[in-house]
Amino acid sequence: MKNTTKAYLAITLQSLIIGFSFLFVKIALRNADTISLLAHRFTLAALCICIYRFFNPGKIIVKRVDWLKIIPFSFAYPISFFLFQTLGLKIISSSEAGIVQAIAPILTLIAARIILKEQIKNLQKVFILISVSGVVYINVLNGFNLSNYSYFGFLFIFMSATSFAIYNVLTKKLSKDYSVFSIVYVMSITGCIVFNLISIFLHIINGNISSYFEPFSEPSFVWAIVYLGVISSLLTSLLSTYALGKLEATKVGLFSNVSTVVTILAGTVFLHESLYYYHYVGIVAILAGTIGFNLFKLPQKDISK
C-alpha cells in the first residue's frame, strides 16, 4: 500500500473518530465541567503514551532540546485550540461556533501557502469553498441568530480555528525532523500539564478541590473519558501527524469538515436526533467538496516518495 493511500486512510479514520467524539463529550459533561474534562482527557492520553514509551523506548527519543522545539507547537494544539473553543462555546451557540470553525480549511490553505509554499489549482479552491459552504449551510439552518451574536464569542472560535490551521501547517514542518510518536508524546504531556493546572486552580478558587476525582465514580464518565483520552485525543493525534507527513496540509485540514457529517449521522442513529432536508444538502456539499478537492493532484512532486 502506498504511503499516500495510508495517509488518506489515517485522516479518514481520524475524521470518523472526531465525529463520534461529540457523543462522548455530551456523556462526559454530565459529570464534569469542560476544563476538568480536558484535564482528565489529556491525563489519560499522556499516561498511555508514557506507557507505550516505557515498553518501546526506541520509538520515542526526546531530548531536552527536542522538548524546547516541540512544546511551542503544543500551544497551537491542543492548548489554544481547546481553550479558545471552550471560551467561545460559553458565549455563543454550537451552531454559531460551527459556522466560524468551518473556515479552518481556508485558514489552513492560507497558512500553507505562506509558510509551506503549497500550490493548489483554482478548481481546488472552488471545491474548498463548496465543502465549507456545506458546513455553514447546515449550521445556519440549525439556528443562527445574528441579533444575539457575540463578537467575543466569534473572536474566540476564530482563534480556535486559527490555532488548528497553524497546527496543521507547523506540524507538517515538524514531522520532517521528528517521528510521529515523539511529536504526540510531547504534545500530550504538555496538554496534560496545562489543562490540569488550570482545572486544579479553578477547583481551589471555587473551594471544591475534592470534586476533582468525583466524575470517575460514574461508569458512563469512565467509558466516555477512555474514548476521548485514548482514541479521540491520542490516536487521532497520531493519525493526523502521520497524514501531515505524507499529504499536503491543505488536504488534511479540509478533512476536518468530514467530522461534521459523522457527527450529524451519529446523532441521528444514537441520539435519535432529527435529520432535515438541509442536513442532506449540506452533507452532499461537504463530501463533494472534499472528494473533488482530493481528485486533483497538486502541480508538484508526490511528497510521500
Rank of each mutant, 00 (worst) to 15 (best):
S133C: 08
Q119R: 15
W67L: 15
F84T: 04
Q85Y: 10
L129K: 02
Y77W: 00
F156Q: 06
S274V: 08
K125S: 08
S232R: 04
L109E: 07
I189K: 09
I303L: 14
A7T: 08
V169C: 04
Y167F: 12
S36C: 00
V135P: 05
G191A: 12
F216L: 11
N139C: 11
F127I: 04
L23T: 11
A165D: 02
F296V: 15
I193D: 08
Q101E: 09
L13E: 09
T290C: 15
Q101S: 14
L155T: 12
I205D: 12
A32K: 01
L47Q: 03
T171F: 01
H279L: 08
P78L: 02
I189Y: 07
L271I: 05
R64L: 10
R53L: 12
I200W: 04
D177Y: 13
L116E: 08
G98K: 13
N148T: 15
I99R: 15
I193G: 06
E248T: 02
V135Q: 12
F213M: 13
K90R: 14
N196I: 04
S179I: 02
L235M: 15
G267K: 04
S21Y: 07
L47F: 13
K305H: 03
T86K: 10
F82R: 04
V169R: 01
I128T: 02
G191P: 11
V252W: 01
D177A: 14
G191F: 08
S179R: 10
Q85G: 11
F213V: 14
Y178N: 10
V62F: 03
G207K: 09
V25L: 14
F144P: 02
A243H: 07
F195V: 07
I303K: 14
T5C: 01
V230C: 10
S147M: 09
I51T: 12
I17Y: 06
F81C: 00
T190L: 02
